[in-house]
């Protein structure tokens, strides 16, 4: 059932640039897929591992900043700088995970500590010189594949499709692999998992490092897309919120949930703009109302609902 949905979505994704060459259409899909991938990163840790982070901006922003700093300040090739960003995101994730899990933080305590770390990073990025401080960091415009800046929007789009597919495959791997089974066991009952001989701390640490490296990847792509970073853009609270909205609406702990959720939410955002007109804020009121109504009637997310429906 959800396998069929996955193939269907992939076919649709490849057809999207054929439907219309319109750049607004492509931009819509590029941003949606970027946040779908960020959502998948969050889903790996929260959906499969049960650790709710409110601070994925810390990983996203670190990936973005490292990629940008390496190429702007040290002249590193943007592709290699990007790899640095991915690694940096993962390392920061592992470090935050290490202290948090070491001291046994769970539930809302873990959530709040990640939120606090993201805020510390935001304040620091605004204060130190290497990030450009408050003035932000501008990546020079150098169109060309070798500079990780595609002239053609469609190339960026296909890159993101590939990323999102890789994210779904990671989630599928979690569903099928031994590591994933450990992770789910930790989510369901940590003490029981420990009793079964699962090394809980290591499993959680691996999950947060993987999740954070994925979030860092999203940050790298963001930097290459928009070529400008400041502390609010990279470490802002809205990044952390974007990361968790999609998976929860789409279906927590499902491989396709974050993708479905991101498409639904971004589509809803656009639709709301179309419906209510120009008064600032009204579209977001509508967005919030629909969000709450969706939660009311689809408590397990869209994919969760589809799965139940399929089982009937």
């Amino acid at each position: 059932m959800s396998r069929a949905l996955g193939w269907l979505m992939l076919a649709a994704a490849l057809a999207i640039p054929q439907v219309s060459g319109s750049s607004a259409w492509l931009t819509f899909w590029i941003t949606t897929l970027l946040f779908a991938y960020l959502g998948q990163a969050w889903n790996v840790l929260a959906g499969y591992g049960g650790q709710f982070s409110f601070g994925h901006a810390a990983f996203f922003g670190t990936g973005a900043y490292i990629a940008a700093i390496l190429q702007v300040r040290y002249g590193v090739n943007p592709w290699i700088a990007g790899l640095g960003g991915v690694a940096g995101g993962g390392i920061v994730g592992a470090a935050i995970g290490w202290v948090s899990f070491r001291y046994g933080l769970r539930g809302s305590y873990f959530a709040l500590v990640t939120l606090a770390f993201a805020e510390v990073f935001r304040v620091l990025a605004n204060a130190v010189a290497i990030t450009g401080g408050g003035q932000g960091l501008l990546i020079p415009l150098k169109p060309g594949v070798e500079h990780f800046q595609f002239v053609d929007r469609a190339s960026f789009y296909y890159l993101l499709v590939a990323l999102v597919v890789s994210g779904v495959l990671i989630a599928r791997w979690l569903e099928a692999s031994r590591f994933g089974a450990w992770l789910v066991a930790v989510r369901e009952n940590e003490d029981a998992a420990r009793a079964l001989g699962i090394r809980v701390f290591r499993v959680k640490l691996a999950a947060i490092a993987l999740s954070a490296a994925m979030a860092g990847t999203a940050g790298v792509v963001y930097a290459q897309l928009f070529l400008y970073l400041d502390a609010g853009v990279a470490y802002g609270g809205h990044v952390s919120v974007e990361a968790l909205l999609g998976p929860i609406v789409g279906g927590l702990g499902t491989a396709l949930g974050p993708v479905v959720g991101a498409i639904l939410l971004h589509g809803l955002g656009e639709a709301a703009k179309g419906v209510v007109g120009a008064t600032p804020g009204l579209n977001l009121v509508l967005y919030g109302v629909v969000l709450v109504i969706m939660l009311r009637f689809l408590p397990n997310g869209v994919v969760g609902w589809l799965k139940r429906w399929g089982q009937r």
């Binding site: 929860i248 008064t279 804020g281 977001l284 009121v285 919030g288 969000l291 709450v292 939660l295 408590p299």
Partner: peptide
């Protein structure tokens, strides 16, 4: 529905509505 993440999202949704309602 007895789920923490849903309560969290509900308060987030309420925040979005109140903030932007005030703006409008």
């Amino acid at each position: 529905h007895g789920k923490d993440q849903n309560i969290l999202m509900a308060t987030l949704g309420i925040a979005i509505v109140i903030d932007n309602g005030a703006l409008a």
